[in-house]
């Protein structure tokens, strides 16, 4: 038993290291966001002062609050829309045997992992032709390209795991596929819908390339673009305090959500992959 204690110590040292590396950058952002003046520019491990001036600046100057609203609206609508289409599609993909199913599944997975830049110029044209440029709808439309395949994929793997018996009973009772989906599967799928919806929401909330390309005015920006383009009085002067405050504002709700739905998120993340 002598040699065991140092192994345990080493193990816990590793654990502490993992936690510190994972959490420290965000902690440092929080500290920075609470400082101003010269304190901001002195590296430190505990806040030298606590002021909410940076938060006040971010929330009152410019259109940051508007950007938060835009992001919530866009991500919310995108996710609802994707889930709506995905529930029926993934029922078909998981419970019905038809020709070309494997190929279709691979195509869907392919689309979800597509390089976004490959469709950028084509989407730019489409968005302009539909008159959606510089509106939230341009982003709702373009985010469908990754939220829809993703939700279909994850829901398909979830549904495939539901026992065949419940469906058989419904078929014997003469239920149509539509009734099976809405009456039998949907009640069982709620947890999966929440997980998938949350993951898709995070994806849409964090998206940058399309948001940067398809909006031009400050009032139409989403949160990531607003943070990326946050500038100070002059070009040279980067307002680190405000940037950190803005970063904390948009990250805290995500972290809270992730911590609440921890188990479900891990299940959802891995549902797509580890079947083989």
């Amino acid at each position: 038993m002598q040699q065991v204690w140092w192994k345990t110590a080493l193990f816990y040292a590793g654990v502490v290291l993992i936690v510190v590396i994972a959490v420290y950058p965000f902690y440092y952002a929080v500290i920075t966001s609470l400082e101003s003046g010269t304190a901001l520019f002195t590296p430190n491990f505990l806040p030298e002062m606590i002021t909410f001036q940076n938060y006040v600046n971010v929330l009152t100057q410019g259109a940051f609050v508007r950007s938060i609203g835009n992001s919530i609206l866009i991500a919310g609508v995108t996710v609802c829309f994707a889930l709506l289409l995905a529930v029926t599609a993934s029922y078909a993909l998981s419970r019905v045997r038809f020709r070309g199913r494997g190929l279709l599944l691979m195509t869907i997975l392919g689309v979800s992992m597509f390089p976004q830049i490959a469709v950028l110029s084509g989407l730019y044209e489409l968005v302009n032709l539909l008159g959606l440029y510089n509106t939230p709808w341009a982003l709702v439309l373009s985010y469908t390209i990754f939220t829809l395949p993703f939700t279909v994929w994850v829901l398909t793997t979830f549904m495939r795991d539901l026992p065949i018996e419940i469906e058989e009973a419904a078929i014997v009772d003469g239920a149509s596929p539509w009734v099976i989906i809405t009456q039998v599967f949907l009640p069982l799928l709620w947890p999966a819908l929440v997980t998938t919806g949350l993951l898709a929401f995070i994806g849409a909330w964090n998206e940058f390339l399309f948001a940067l390309t398809f909006t031009i005015s400050e009032t139409q920006r989403t949160v990531p673009v607003a943070i990326a383009l946050l500038s100070g009085a002059s070009q040279q002067e980067i307002p680190w305090g405000s940037i950190m405050a803005a970063s904390v504002i948009v990250t805290v709700p995500l972290i809270v959500l992730v911590l609440i739905f921890q188990r479900k998120i891990v299940a959802g993340l891995t549902a797509g992959g580890v079947k083989g």
């Binding site: 959490v23 965000f26 673009v225 972290i255 911590l259 998120i265």
Partner: peptide, 13 residues
Amino acid sequence: AAILIPWAIPTVV
């Protein structure tokens, strides 16, 4: 929970 934090933070942030 701790390692989920970097994952949840937007890339821009």
